[in-house]
Simulated scan of single mutants.
Amino acid sequence: MRDIMGLMKQAQEMQQKMANVQAELDTIEVEGAAGGGMVTVTMTAKGEVKSVKIDPSLMVVDEREILEDLVVAACGDARTRAERVMQERMSEITKGLPIPPGMKLF
C-alpha cells in the first residue's frame, strides 16, 4: 500500500511541475532564421508567433515568392527550436521516473 501512496504523491508532484513548466513555456521565446538571417521569426516555446523581421533588401516586388518561402522556413526553424526547448523542460520533470521506453507524456 505504501508503494501506491508514494506513486500517487509522485504523480501529483509531477502534475504540479508540468503545470509550472507549461506556464513557463508561454514566456520562453525562441528565434528561427532563414536566408542567412535575413528573415527571423520569434515565437514562444508553445508556438505562438510574436514577431517577424525581414531585411529590407528582400522587399523586391518580383521576388515575393522567395520572401514567402523564407518566412515559412524561418517559422519552421523557430518551431523546431521551440520543440527542443519544450522537450528539454519536460525531460527535467520526468527524470528518474519509471516511464516505459517510447511512452510520451507531452
Rank of each mutant, 00 (worst) to 15 (best):
M1F: 12
M1N: 13
R2V: 13
R2I: 10
D3N: 09
L7K: 15
L7N: 14
M8K: 09
Q10N: 09
Q10C: 06
A11S: 05
Q12F: 01
Q12K: 15
E13L: 08
E13R: 09
E13W: 04
M14H: 09
M14W: 00
M14P: 02
A19F: 08
V21Y: 00
Q22H: 13
E24P: 06
E24K: 12
L25V: 07
L25T: 04
D26Y: 09
D26S: 15
D26T: 11
T27C: 08
I28E: 03
E29M: 11
V30K: 04
E31Q: 14
E31L: 07
E31M: 10
E31G: 03
A33I: 10
A33N: 13
A33W: 07
A34E: 04
G35W: 05
G35F: 02
G35H: 07
G37I: 05
M38R: 15
V39Y: 01
V41H: 06
V41K: 00
T42Q: 12
T44H: 02
T44M: 00
A45M: 04
A45K: 02
K46V: 08
G47C: 03
K50T: 08
K50R: 13
S51Q: 07
S51L: 04
I54N: 00
I54L: 01
D55G: 06
D55A: 09
S57Q: 15
L58G: 07
M59N: 12
V61E: 15
D62R: 10
R64T: 14
R64V: 13
R64A: 13
R64Y: 11
E65C: 01
I66Q: 07
E68H: 00
E68Y: 07
D69W: 04
L70Q: 00
V71Y: 00
V72Y: 08
A74M: 03
C75S: 14
C75R: 14
G76F: 06
G76W: 02
G76E: 11
D77P: 07
A78D: 06
A78I: 08
R79K: 15
T80C: 10
R81W: 07
A82M: 06
A82L: 02
E83C: 04
E83L: 11
V85Y: 03
M86F: 10
Q87M: 14
Q87L: 13
E88D: 12
R89D: 07
R89F: 06
M90N: 00
E92L: 10
E92H: 14
K95H: 10
G96F: 05
L97I: 14
L97W: 05
P100W: 12
P100C: 01
P101F: 06
G102F: 05
G102R: 03
K104A: 15
